[in-house]
């Protein structure tokens, strides 16, 4: 089976405060450390486990981003993905979910995919719109919020997280599957994996390779525009106390004062 996992490089959520450039109104990517999206790490882990379980399958990491995103694909390779594709083109800067899905779908069509894994949402954009968009461009179903996946022949059966519990849903393949965060234990790259990654193939593709016009994507093709950027209203901090043994009483008094008991 041919499996793909869509991954993205994002500003490190543990150190960066995500900032927008007031002039370009784009995410500030310079001066912040960039990492493979932590959500995608758990998606990659799920995909690797599934590839090994199904057997006789190839798992390819697919990413669209600037040249620096190579780092993210390298990490995916070190984790155990078989090869990687990076779609990079200056015209892609400022792409929205629509064009991102269009570009990724074009690459997936060219490659031919039976199973496509995505995270439910990315850490920097968190639109959650790319996976369903890919599925729509390819005309295949999307199975979302998966916390357990079973592949039986040409069928996928997943346990889908819902607010009240879960659903078991089934579809034919090919399909896009999104992984609910925290459902799969992360695989960490080993030294052997990191060394091995250097020998794996990383292919670059441009828009021309995919037959997509530059005017359709990036800022030129965006369906949305930021009009202005402002400061969020900060919630004022209140009273801070140190527990000297009486904290429970003090909290209870606070609750009583505001009629919360």
């Amino acid at each position: 089976m041919k499996m793909f996992v869509c991954i993205k490089q994002v500003p490190d959520p543990n150190t960066a405060i995500s900032k927008l450039d007031p002039a370009t109104k784009r995410l500030v990517r310079s001066g912040v450390s960039l990492v493979l999206d932590p959500g995608d790490e758990s998606t990659i882990s799920a995909a690797i486990k599934l590839r090994d379980k199904v057997g006789n399958s190839e798992l390819v990491a697919l990413s669209m981003g600037p040249a620096s995103a190579q780092e993210a694909t390298r990490r995916a390779l070190a984790m155990g993905v078989d090869r990687a594709i990076l779609i990079t083109d200056p015209a892609l800067a400022g792409s929205d979910a629509f064009s991102t899905a269009q570009v990724l779908a074009a690459a997936l069509k060219k490659e031919g995919a039976d199973l496509i894994f995505c995270s439910t949402e990315s850490t920097d954009g968190y639109t959650g719109m790319v996976p369903g968009g890919i599925a729509e461009f390819l005309g295949i179903p999307q199975l979302t919020f998966a916390r357990e996946i079973t592949i039986e022949g040409q069928k996928a059966i997943i346990k889908r997280v819902i607010p009240k519990g879960y659903q078991t849903i089934e579809s034919t393949l090919p399909a896009v599957i999104t992984i609910a965060s925290g459902s799969y234990e992360a695989i960490y790259p080993t030294m052997k994996g990191i060394m091995g990654a250097k020998k794996k193939t990383l292919t670059q593709m441009s828009l021309a390779d995919l037959g997509i016009a530059a005017t359709q994507v990036g800022e030129a093709g965006a369906h949305e525009r930021v009009l202005s950027i402002g400061k969020a209203e900060a919630r004022a901090a209140g009273q801070i106390i140190k527990d000297d043994g009486n904290a429970a009483q003090q909290i209870a008094e606070f609750l009583q004062r505001y009629q919360l008991l």
């Binding site: 979910a97 629509f98 639109t127 719109m129 996976p131 369903g132 968009g133 607010p163």
Partner: peptide, 20 residues
């Protein structure tokens, strides 16, 4: 959960534009 999945496809199928 459900409306999000629906929105992602409606957006593409009808070339709409979408703010999340």
């Amino acid at each position: 959960y459900d409306l999000r999945d629906i929105a992602a496809r409606l957006n593409i199928r009808n070339n709409l534009g979408l703010i999340t």
